[in-house]
């Protein structure tokens, strides 16, 4: 079956201060219908840029986007004008951390729905009200919320409204960029559990972006990890207990587990992510890598380890790392 989203060789350049800076390079992944893919990375890794590029929300005067992005088989990067506008909202919706603060403060929640639906040709206000109430019900909000203004809602309720808005046009794909970072863990859990339930119910796909790998491993079906503008590893959630890329291994390790006290000391990753205007030659992670060898001076390819389930890694030494794993586990 055709994937809902198919990204191949995506790159993004930002234009800053008269310079051209490549912030995303050679990113390839696919999301099947009803699947949730988690994209993890640190700040500056380019993960949010991937979201913006896939949703076609980067402005041409600020950024250049290349490679392939197919939405239900349609070349999404080639669309322009009205075609882009229609496809964008009907096929992709974006829920971001800032979205809940981007609700128009001077109109009530119903107007937010009504404006959105009207813009896409649903002009019957009575039906729109009905539809808005239904959507709110999906995210467990009572109908009365329609008459409230954004400032009268808590952060969690606002984010639920944003999710309901995102669902309004039955998109095939919802991109969630740090949707719950500003919320506390209990509210986060309520909302994300709801998203999972809705996903099962309605069958949309999700690209979930966050810095919190620990959360992704509990939430999503598959995870992809980004470092310095590139994907370094992807695989099903279970794969990451034996991940093959030293960065993802270190990242998994760098969350103290719930029952771990300091007597069992863990180490973080030495150094800091590179400056993208001067990325390290060869593998971009090699200056911080504990497995570094001479071969790392040449840039590693994005290499499939297995096809089904898809596991791919960008590391020249993944075979050695896998073998070492096997020997230590046995």
């Amino acid at each position: 079956m055709q994937p809902v989203l198919h990204v191949e060789g995506l790159w993004v350049d930002y234009f800053t201060r008269g310079r051209r800076l490549r912030v995303v390079q050679d990113v390839s992944f696919a999301i099947e219908r009803g699947e949730m893919l988690g994209l993890a990375g640190e700040s500056g890794s380019g993960k949010s840029t991937v979201a913006l590029a896939v949703a076609r929300l980067l402005r041409p005067e600020n950024a250049a986007v290349g490679g392939m992005v197919r939405l239900n088989g349609t070349d999404f990067l080639a669309l322009v004008g009205e075609g882009l506008r229609q496809t964008r909202w009907k096929s992709v919706a974006l829920v971001s951390q800032s979205a809940m603060n981007a609700l128009n403060p001077v109109i009530n929640i119903f107007r937010q729905f009504d404006d959105m639906l009207t813009a896409h040709g649903y002009t019957d206000a009575v039906q729109n009200r009905h539809r808005a109430a239904e959507l709110l019900d999906l995210v467990d909000l009572p109908e009365q919320v329609l008459n409230r203004f954004p400032h009268q809602l808590s952060g969690g309720m606002k984010q639920r409204v944003v999710i309901a808005l995102a669902l309004a046009l039955h998109p095939d794909l919802i991109i969630m960029d740090e949707p719950t970072t500003a919320l506390d863990v209990i509210v986060e859990r309520e909302i994300l559990s709801k998203v999972k339930t809705l996903q099962r119910q309605l069958g949309f796909s999700v690209l979930f972006i966050t810095h919190d790998l620990d959360l992704l491993l509990r939430l999503t079906d598959r995870v992809a990890i980004m470092y310095a503008g590139q994907l370094v590893e992807t695989g099903p959630v279970g794969h990451f207990s034996r991940s093959l890329h030293p960065y993802s291994r270190a990242l998994v390790q760098s969350f103290p587990s719930l029952h771990q006290h300091a007597s069992d000391r863990r180490r973080g990753i030495p150094g800091a992510p590179p400056d993208l205007s001067h990325p390290p030659a060869g593998c971009r992670f090699h200056p911080r890598c504990v497995f570094v060898a001479d071969v790392c001076q040449t840039a590693p390819a994005w290499e499939a380890v297995s096809e089904d389930p898809l596991i791919a890694v960008r590391c020249s030494r993944w075979k050695e790392i896998r073998d070492e794993f096997v020997s230590t586990v046995d």
Binding site: D140, L141, S154, G156, M157, V185, I186, E188, R189, E190, L192, S193, K194, K196, T197, R200, R218, L219, L258
Partner: peptide, 23 residues
């Protein structure tokens, strides 16, 4: 308990954890 649960358990299994939203 809710905090602990929210930071460990998987999502989407079973009902929502907390009571109804209320200020």
């Amino acid at each position: 308990r809710l905090l602990l649960d929210a930071s460990t358990a998987d999502f989407g299994n079973g009902p929502s954890v907390a009571g109804p939203l209320g200020a």
